[in-house]
Nucleic acid binder design. Sequence first.
RNA 1: GGGUCGAUGGCAGAGUGGUCAAUUGCUCCUGGCUGUAAACCAGGCGACUUCGGUCUACGGCGGUUCGAAUCCGUCUCGGCCCA
Length: 403
Amino acid sequence: MTINTDPQKIDQLLTRGVDEVIDAKNLRNKLLSGKKLRVKLGIDPTSPDLHLGRAVPLLKLRDFQELGHQIIFLVGNATGVIGDSSDKDAERPMLTHEDVKENMKKYVEQAGKIIDLDKAEIRYNADWLNKLGYNEIGHHADAFSLHEFLQRDNIKKRLDAGKRVSLRELLYPLMQGYDSIALEADVEIGGTDQRFNLLAGRVLQEQAGQEAQDIVMGNIIIGTDGRKMSSSWGNTIKLTDTPRDMGEKIMNMPDDIVPVYFENCTRMPQELIDEVFRDADPRYHKLILAGVIVNFYHGESAACDIKDYLQKKFVDKNLDVSEIEEVEIHKCERLDSLETVSILMVRKGYATSKSDAQRKIEQGGVKLDGINVSHGTKILSEDDDGKVLTVGKKIQIRLKCTK
RNA sequence: GGGUCGAUGGCAGAGUGGUCAAUUGCUCCUGGCUGUAAACCAGGCGACUUCGGUCUACGGCGGUUCGAAUCCGUCUCGGCCCA
């Protein structure tokens, strides 16, 4: 495949969703030269699902791929065990190899929704990192001073707060940096929180006699509640989310982060985005955004369906009963009857425990066909077949009773 | 290695023998308001329950006591200072 050197495309590549490029001039020239570049993105399998935040650099990787460059999707099965604390304000616990292995499988598959895996180089950094000995590690470590490490903002904060900083955490940048040597990377993509680690790659590559990689730092997007997107906050949109979940999360997000998502999480042309924002209605922006994102991850027909659904649910507010997710009522052997509302809620994860379900009911948060479920434990009956159960503002299901 | 302080619910952080399922703040949840969200206001926030209660929980284990998050011993882990 030939390398696309269209200057306009290259500009787009170096700016959209990008916070900073090092060394911008050098990278631009390389891209214009028509040379096929080796572009690396590493992701540690620290949680089972990729989310839209992680997808930002993946989309950037895709941009490179579309221009014809060799992309490398690096699974951090060695770095994942050590754990990077770059984006954390606390020490990250070491994971077990089993955890990492489990997460790894799903990662590659999910990444395949964004990049073309057939043309990508998929690598695992345990293949080289776990072969290093103290001799080499010592050599790498000598390229950095403790002072540099301590100057990192999050490390400094933790030290000032009297929190523990493990020596292990010093190893992380060395590992990520060595990956670049092993892969002979020309470019590395990462989030802005990765700055230190990304720069470590440059230093180590030069130490090893390679040309230093250029760095493309993608924006860090915020979560659906306006805070930093993080799996532990539960404010992520996961790539594995159903179209409906994706759509509803988007409709419920704060208005002012919508443009951020357009820029970083989609590749909708800027002119079209401007067009969308000429309409002042935030709900309209969100509807479009939901459509674009669902289209990308779930396909066109899902996107049409979801826009229709969201329009009805959030704008027209007259959702057809038939469009509400159907949940089957189970039997409850202990009660010798059908299950109760609270058991159903716990089973479906709408409440964390029966006590929690009971509280929601008592507070008037649970309705059956628009009527508050009364105190005590409402036992469902066959008469409830087809009735709509609402829990809070967001959950709505239609009950189904099979005889 | 020595000294010293400390470990409490998702987080922060009170409590220092019974009135503690544990003050308070944040997060979170529910209701109200709103086009959604936010903000704001109100309530809630261990589990189970026949709604009388019952059980589990203040780093682990063991002890003192009628009774322990609180006292003692020991172990594990962390901060700070010294070497």
